[in-house]
Simulated assay, not measured.
Amino acid sequence: MRNFVQSVLISVLLLAAVGCGTDADAGKPLDAHRLVVGVTAGPHEQIMEKVKEVAAKDGLDIDIKVFNDYPMVNIALAEGELDVNSFQHEPYLEQMKKDKNLDLVAVADTVNFPMGIYSNRIKDLKQLKKGDKIGLPNDPTNGTRALLLFEQAGLIKLKKGIGIQATVKDIVENPLDLELVELEAAQIPRQLDEFAAAAINTNFAVEHGLLPTRDAIFMEPKDSPWVNVLAVRTENKDDPVIQKLIKAYHSEEVKRFVEETFKGSVVPSW
Rank of each mutant, 00 (worst) to 15 (best):
E194I: 00
N201P: 01
A197F: 08
L178N: 13
A199V: 12
R190T: 10
E173Y: 03
E182P: 01
E182N: 07
K169N: 09
L178G: 09
I200P: 05
T202D: 09
A197Q: 08
D177H: 05
D177S: 12
L176C: 07
A197T: 11
D177W: 04
R190E: 15
P175Y: 15
N203Q: 14
A196F: 11
P189H: 15
D170W: 02
A196L: 04
D177R: 07
E184M: 02
A199W: 07
A196M: 04
Q191L: 12
L183Q: 07
E194V: 00
N201T: 06
I188G: 04
K169A: 14
I164K: 11
L180Q: 09
Q191K: 12
A186G: 04
I171P: 03
Q165I: 00
D170I: 04
V181M: 06
L176I: 02
N203P: 08
E182V: 01
A186F: 08
V168N: 07
L176D: 14
E182C: 00
I164G: 01
Q187W: 06
V168F: 01
T202L: 02
V168D: 14
A166C: 01
P189S: 13
N201S: 07
A198H: 10
N201L: 13
A198W: 14
V181R: 03
I188S: 06
V181I: 15
A186Y: 12
Q187P: 00
N174V: 02
A166E: 10
V168H: 01
N201Q: 12
D193T: 08
E173G: 03
I171K: 07
N201F: 06
R190A: 06
P189K: 14
A197C: 04
R190G: 03
R190H: 09
E179L: 09
N174P: 03
L183Y: 11
P189T: 15
I171M: 08
N203M: 07
T202N: 14
R190P: 00
N203A: 10
E179V: 06
L178A: 11
L183D: 05
A199K: 03
L178E: 15
L178C: 07
L176M: 14
K169V: 00
F195A: 04
I164Y: 10
D177N: 15
